[in-house]
Design a protein around this nucleic acid. Structure first.
Length: 888
RNA sequence: GCCCUUGUGGUGGAAUGGUAGACGCGACGGACUCAAAAUCCGUUUCCGAGAGGAGUGGGGGUUCAAGUCCCUCCAAGGGCACCA
């Protein structure tokens, strides 16, 4: 028998051909012939094309659609395999399944490729799509390809533009000036992630802060609703819900206004409004601080060059650099003072400070150093008093002191107010209520809620994105492009030889006439954030060819997505934007499902060993060779060091190419490996040994099915030979159904191993009685159907071999016979004082008295209880009996 | 700094508060073979010859019974990060 050479490490990764003179066809399963054959069968039969059918329950399963970066990677293989198993399983269970695929096709990598390689973003993108589509098809996915689209298709983004216009009408959009990271060399806005050490990632130029008018979607209008609705998303991971909750960041506090006076004690016209969540500590206040961008600081800076210099300093520090530097608290005295609302003699100096954010609350705060880390740092630097006003219950108010570490006990009953006049003795929460009550009565403050969530800035100064459909007119201002003129199509004749957005440099594109006054005007040259594209694609899939963005009938039938699968890296942005978008689409009557994804699953990453050469360069796993217990380079033979097991990434070169794997092992093997052993939410390590193990299992199934196919056909019975096998067969059906319903693929697979392990010994029985043959055939057929969602090609081939004319894809999911799932004998563990001492096989649901009698006959029990007193006997029916004994 | 998650054999991992280690990988032994590969049959938590004992990151607790619940500490991973 020729050996199949399976070594992708040597770089060939190709199976040797099967000699034709041997009868290997029956012995070896040949995925390279079988897989394309069944893929054509499914395609030709339009097996996975979905249609609305109101008489059947629907199931919409969706994996996060890929960015067409070039080639698929193992992370895609894992993601789409999981979705595919669900799609095939639900389909077999009788659901009308929608399982579409598309491309998140706008974005910067296409422009980078254009700049670096001189290719056009469009050509680059569609070429990648063609490659990746082919790769996905080689995986044998049960996808309705008739619904495919790319977000860079004008037929997609025209609806995005129309919807944006509707959003404007509905008051969901705002245009305002905001600060951005500006790269003066590339003349473009940079995302925070693209600013490294204060410099542009590509140009290396010092990044500036620049004020730019931009479009915002008013997601903050929905902050409370998005927060509240998280509770209802009980099929989402708690982790993701918590991340969104923290991101939205609701806080309840108090907004109130200090009276201000100048250095001479003269009251100023305006006051200083601050936001706080610790109004209980008002008697511990020792200063106020405002943001460098606060109107008060701006106004005073007009006559104070030093203050203006300080403001510039703070602005230059930017946002991203601070994290690295752990920027020191810095303040600049404004020489104005805030009058304490309850103590007329106390005057708090007001500073402009670098740690106060203009975007949160009122951009101003009062500092209570004794009970806040940041405030105490600031107070110690500028020699401000530290007045403790909260202390652990029972401590001495006169001697309780704080110097460098704040006391931050917030809630609960173990902290009390001290040194705070009418608040003394109250708990923190009681004091908050009292202070709020007094401020409201005095008319200087009120309870307010603040959110951390900011509005969503969607303008990007980029070419490869959806054009924002507005026109800027000198006399009419901002004029929406009339819907009849949509789509605003991206021009293709652009160049990337100049820095900045090619749309700005384009000779004609932006020059238009104003739709309102017919005078000369200019198009908006900004494009949308690509997160907009991915915020509604799931809805477009329900009616991808409709003349409107979403066909209401289709949307009503298919939405929401029943199962959404993707990486946890999208836990916040994409998933929060989509939730907002769903609401915005409801408001503008484009759809009516407020929550887009009923159930969410976040799968783990694919990780792999890393290899490093002597010169420090990373080495591809396919170039690493295990030789005499050490790793060497396959070509040069030089020794390699094995690094950590990390996420597959191009930079570490620890990638395995799906094409190579599918060519050498087959799609079914790759799919099987991705689902085996590791729970889907955890990171899975790709190993050669594991892949070979999965491959061997495909061969084992093939052998088993071949043998079963040759057995004489006879009925399985409820008695006699093969009953044990039948019980396992039916229990496997029940358990695997449950596992797949709960996405516990690794558990389902272990049960398939168990079933196949049980078939083996029965097959080697010589002169099988007819009822055993019947049980074996049933077990084999069940095995094939149960594994079909994971290994669809092998399943079809086996099913045919077993004599079926209807394909597995059109065969219903097997249903367990209750009588065979039920157990009639149970093994009961016998414990003495909670320790297992023996076990006993008994009929199910045995009477307690009889059970005890049988247990006391056991030698082990006699030995352990001899001369002791039985205090208590605990019986858990059909599971355990525990004898509690003592010496006395 | 704050918040969250996870710690189980050589390894990936099973286990509604009820027999810890299912199933896979690896390893070891055997069968088949001139031999190897493939395949099949065993063994594989640790200590102990055995009876037996110990054991789910460490320590404590609740319970007849704890991998599972509670407290605490340690380690790894993740999220947020001047949010007043």
């Amino acid at each position: 028998m020729p050996r199949l050479q399976l070594n992708s490490r040597t770089g060939t990764g190709v199976a040797t051909d099967f000699p034709k003179d041997l009868h290997v066809a029956l012995e070896r399963y040949n995925h390279r012939e079988t897989e394309p054959k069944w893929q054509s069968f499914w395609t030709d039969g339009k097996c996975f094309e979905a249609k609305e059918d109101f008489s059947r329950p629907k199931y919409y399963v969706l994996e996060m659609f890929p960015y067409p970066s070039g080639r698929i990677h193992m992370g895609h293989v894992r993601n789409y395999t999981m979705g595919d198993v669900i799609a095939r399983f639900r389909r077999a269970c009788g659901y009308n399944v929608l399982h579409p695929m598309g491309w998140d096709a706008f974005g910067m990598p296409a422009e980078n490729a254009a700049i670096e390689r001189g290719v056009h973003p469009k050509g680059w993108t569609y070429d990648n799509i063609a490659t990746m589509r082919g790769q996905l098809k080689s995986m044998g996915l049960a996808i309705d390809w008739s619904r495919e689209f790319a977000t860079c298709d004008p037929s997609y983004y025209r609806h995005e533009q129309a919807m944006f216009l509707d959003f404007i009408t509905a008051g969901l959009v705002e245009r305002r000036v905001s600060l951005v990271n500006w790269d003066p060399v590339d003349q473009t806005v940079l995302a925070n992630e693209q600013v490294i050490d204060g410099k542009g990632w590509r140009s290396g130029a010092a990044v500036e802060k620049r004020e730019l008018a931009q479009w915002f979607l008013k997601i903050t209008d929905y902050a409370q609703e998005l927060l509240d609705a998280l509770t209802g998303l009980d099929k989402w991971p708690d982790k993701v819900r918590l991340m969104q909750k923290n991101w939205i960041g609701r806080s309840e506090g108090l907004t109130f206004t200090f009276e201000l006076e100048d250095a001479n004690g003269k009251k100023l016209d305006e006051g200083l409004t601050v936001y706080t969540t610790r109004h209980d500590t008002i008697f511990g206040a020792s200063f106020c601080a405002v943001s460098a961008d606060h109107p008060l600081a701006k106004k005073l800076a007009l006559h104070d060059p030093l203050l203006e210099a300080f403001r510039k300093d703070v602005a230059a520090l930017g946002t991203s650099e601070e994290n690295i530097e752990r920027a020191e608290k810095k303040g600049f005295p404004l020489h104005v003072f805030a009058r304490h609302p309850f103590r007329k003699d106390v005057k708090l100096p007001v500073f402009a400070a670098n740690f106060v954010l203009m975007g949160y609350g009122e951009g101003a705060l009062f500092g209570c150093p004794a009970h806040d880390q940041r405030d105490i740092d600031f107070a110690n630097k500028y020699h401000l008093p530290i007045l403790p006003v909260v202390a652990p219950r029972g401590s001495n108010a006169n001697t309780f002191q704080i110097t460098t570490e704040p006391y931050v006990e917030k809630d609960g009953d173990n902290a009390v107010l001290i040194n705070s006049e009418f608040l003394d003795g109250l708990s923190v929460s009681e004091a908050k209520v009292e202070v709020a009550r007094r401020f409201e009565k005095m008319g200087i403050g009120k309870r307010t809620v603040n959110f951390r969530l900011r509005d969503w800035g969607v303008s990007r100064q980029r070419y490869w994105g959806c054009p924002i459909p507005v026109i800027h007119c000198k006399s009419c201002g901002i004029v929406p492009v009339p819907k009849s003129q949509l789509p605003v199509v991206l021009p293709e004749d652009v160049t990337f030889d100049k820095p900045g957005n090619p749309l700005v440099h384009h000779p004609t594109w932006k020059h238009v006439t104003c739709p309102a006054c017919n005078e000369k005007a200019e198009r908006e040259t900004d494009t949308f954030d690509t997160f907009i594209d991915s915020s509604w694609y799931y809805a477009r899939f329900t009616s991808p060819h409709d003349a409107e963005a979403v066909d209401p009938v289709a949307a009503k039938y298919w939405l929401p997505v029943d199962q959404y699968i993707g990486g946890v890296e999208h836990a916040i942005l994409h998933l929060l934007y989509s939730r907002f978008y769903a609401r915005a689409m409801t408001k503008t009557h484009h759809a009516n499902a407020d929550e887009p994804f009923a159930s969410l699953f976040t799968q783990g990453m694919v990780i792999h060993e890393t290899f490093k050469a002597v010169n420090g360069e990373w080495v591809l796993p396919s170039d690493a060779l295990h030789k005499d217990g050490a790793w060497v380079h396959a070509n040069t033979g030089e020794p390699l060091t094995v690094g950590g097991v990390e996420k597959m990434s191009k930079s570490k070169r620890n990638v395995v190419d799906p094409d190579t794997i599918i060519a050498s092992y087959g799609a079914d093997t790759a799919r099987w490996f991705m689902l085996s052993d590791t729970p889907p939410e955890r990171d899975i390590e790709w190993t050669e040994a594991g892949a070979e193990g999965s491959w061997r299992f495909t061969q084992r199934i093939w052998r088993i099915v071949n043998e079963i196919a040759e057995l004489p056909k006879s009925a399985a019975t409820l008695h006699g030979n093969g009953l044990t096998l039948r019980r396992l067969t039916h229990r496997s059906m029940a358990a695997i159904t449950e596992d797949l319903n709960n996405l516990r693929f690794n558990r389902a697979i272990s049960r398939i191993y168990e079933l196949s392990n049980a078939i083996g010994p029965n097959l080697s029985v010589v002169d099988k009685p007819p009822d055993l043959s019947g049980a074996l055939r049933e077990a084999g057929e069940t095995l094939v159907l149960l594994m079909a969602p994971m290994m669809p090609h092998l399943a079809e081939e086996c099913w045919k071999l077993l004599g079926h004319t209807e394909a597995v894809v059109n065969t219903p999911w097997p249903r367990a016979i209750a009588e065979l799932v039920a157990v009639d004998e149970v093994t009961i563990a016998v414990q003495v004082n909670g320790k297992r001492r023996d076990e006993i096989l008994l009929p199910k649901a045995m009477d307690r008295g009889m059970l005890e009698a049988r247990v006391f006959e056991l030698e082990s029990v006699k030995r352990m209880t001899e001369g002791k007193i039985i205090k208590k006997i605990i019986v858990v029916p059909d599971r355990i009996i525990n004898l509690v004994v003592t010496d006395q």
